[in-house]
Design a protein around this nucleic acid. Structure first.
Lengths: 342, 342
DNA sequence: GGCTAGTCTGAAATCGTTTGCACAACATGT
DNA sequence: ACATGTTGTGCAAACGATTTCAGACTAGCC
């Protein structure tokens, strides 16, 4: 029932090899036959059988994406970007979710590797060695993380933090808290580094800005809820959270305790997930270009596949972050720090 | 480099046919050789080449999932469920996002159909005829929608609404609003139907409960923001929204206008997305079993594939909904309706 | 012991495509 | 005219599995 290359060959009055060539490399056949073949193929609605092609070329036409948790609103954006770009290049995308479990992650990479030409993996959890090992087995692009010479797409966390700090300092904040995510997270370390750099880059060399690091906490809503009280106890006037989920947890707990945001304490998140704009007050957040991250990941992977293993020309992409200022940040309170509140 | 069936055959001292049989149907070979072959396969780490298998069997081992918008937090849950169930059955899942565009949807179904053995589609937008047509071309399971005899997984929206109405009525509410989603959405019609049924099922036959239908609105945050003022103007004491995104929009606008929730007006959403529990006040919502929906979708599809087209035994699954009561609903205000407020 | 039935196994065909090789046709340079 | 390239095309061999068919062997029965 399905139309094969033979049908096209018969219809065009040529051999199957000619059909194959006419459709693959336009240079390999005469213009006349190419035309004839292409018309025949179009008329019959011919679609090459991917299994057959894959069998001989050794390629699947698929790429894999591994994310720790699809329910984290950061990732759907990335998936969308990947989809779009992959479709343009006639690739299909397998998405796999590891439920934040590094063991599952490793197993999944193994399993998926057989079914795809390469994979993009957003994995804060896997160890560097495991990643390096995986990278030797299959073309690999890392998202939001750098390990050795493995191609990666990252966001300029340091600059994002610079913007956040500049914003807070301009508002008069001098006692800033940072709620850490998982210590093993590359992004977490990077953000902390950026934070410190940003502070020492302020007007007075950062002398009068005090940074309190809290954590680490789970990168989820509950983590933020748990961290909120510590932030209050620490007497900071502004908190920057590892990500938006944590920031929402903070916000939630502050409201529950009757602490005014941003009147008494300002909150900044990271990722700019959709929910950030939906809460009250709307959350100021460091926006990461999610879709672009996905697209760039595919781009790098495609380049990698083209060079079939040798390191691509541009093996790293760093994307800009930018601060979305909303209502959860405001002037620092002049009154005593919220320590002595209910 | 990769280990093929030949390698296993050589290692086990048998022919490739025997290896194939030993691994596929344990009954087809003698226990002794089966044992030998299986050990050899395990030792070599043999993984059958899916392209080769697909070429001869005509199956890909993949299934497709089409969703309107991955950024809608309802879907990641569904994806997770599908993933999990599909992996158990040794299938891989292609996920495609249509950006809420019915045209893209149709094109995508066509394209994807060639690459998968069947697909699960959550499509409020495609027309019934298009869906019927698609169903003849490839095994298909519908999510949250029923069309003719196409297998489907739905949630008991009617019962969900019954619970919501019972909850509100018990709290003393008599003037209830419903914010409609897209009129073309099957789920929207179903929910409205359930709502009406639930009201006429109340103690007094629904005589003193008044339902105001508002809309329709986009099934997104902005839709809720837009609907909020209408709800206030209509003088209802409780609003049920088409989904949680809309409900969050309502909540947001109410807070912005200084209207107390649930003091002056109660809000109920639908879907129970993660963000529902993260806002203030936490949103009462009709929870749909997202992961289970995904799993059930795969189950039905697998059954469909086994019967290779003929209608499966159980061609429909209806899953229960249940109301998650949180803080956005409370006793109806005894004071005059909020109409005459700022 | 010979015939039949049953159980296991292997050889070979097959799926639809790509690609190395050979060959034909024709143009080019001498 | 002949060797030499160049260009376009077809034949046939892969790729790695499944599956049909037939053969080998064992066992059972008269």
């Amino acid at each position: 029932m399905p139309v094969t290359i033979k049908d096209v060959a018969r219809a065009a009055g040529v051999s199957v090899s000619t059909v194959s060539r006419a459709l693959a490399g336009p240079e390999l056949v005469s213009p006349a036959t190419r035309e004839r073949v292409q018309r025949a193929a179009a008329e019959l609605g011919y679609q090459p059988n991917r299994a057959a092609r894959g069998l001989i070329t050794g390629r699947t036409g698929n790429i894999g994406l591994i994310v720790p948790d699809l329910a984290n609103p950061f990732f759907p954006g990335v998936v969308k970007g990947m989809q779009a770009r992959a479709r343009e290049a006639d690739f299909a995308v397998f998405v796999a979710d590891t439920d934040e479990d590094p063991a599952v992650e490793v197993a999944l990479v193994r399993q998926l590797a057989k079914q795809v030409d390469g994979m993009v993996i957003a994995s804060p959890r896997m160890s560097e060695d495991e990643l390096r090992a995986a990278a030797t087995e299959t073309p690999l692009v890392l998202l939001n993380r750098r390990v050795g010479r493995i191609p990666s797409v990252t966001v300029d966390n340091v600059d994002g933090m610079r913007q956040a700090v500049a914003h807070l300092v301009a508002l008069g904040h001098r006692r800033i808290g940072y709620v850490e995510g998982p210590r093993t997270s590359w992004a977490n370390r990077e953000r902390l580094r950026g934070l410190r750099a940003a502070i020492s880059a302020t007007a007075d060399g950062g002398a009068d800005v005090e940074l309190t690091v809290l954590g680490s906490f789970l990168p989820q809503f509950e983590g933020g809820v748990a961290a909120a009280d510590l932030a209050v106890a620490a007497g900071v006037t502004a908190v920057i959270a590892y990500n938006d989920l944590v920031a929402l947890g903070l916000l939630n707990r502050f409201v529950a305790r009757g602490i005014d945001v941003p009147g008494q304490i300002s909150v900044i998140g990271c990722d700019d997930i959709v929910a950030a704009a939906m809460v009250h007050p709307p959350l100021t957040s460091i926006a990461l270009p999610k879709e672009q991250t996905g697209r760039a990941g595919v781009d790098l992977l495609l380049a990698l596949l083209k060079n079939s293993g040798r390191s691509a020309v541009s093996t790293r992409r760093e994307l800009p972050a930018h601060l979305m200022v909303r209502r959860s940040t405001g002037p620092a309170p002049t009154a005593p720090a919220p320590t002595d509140l209910p």
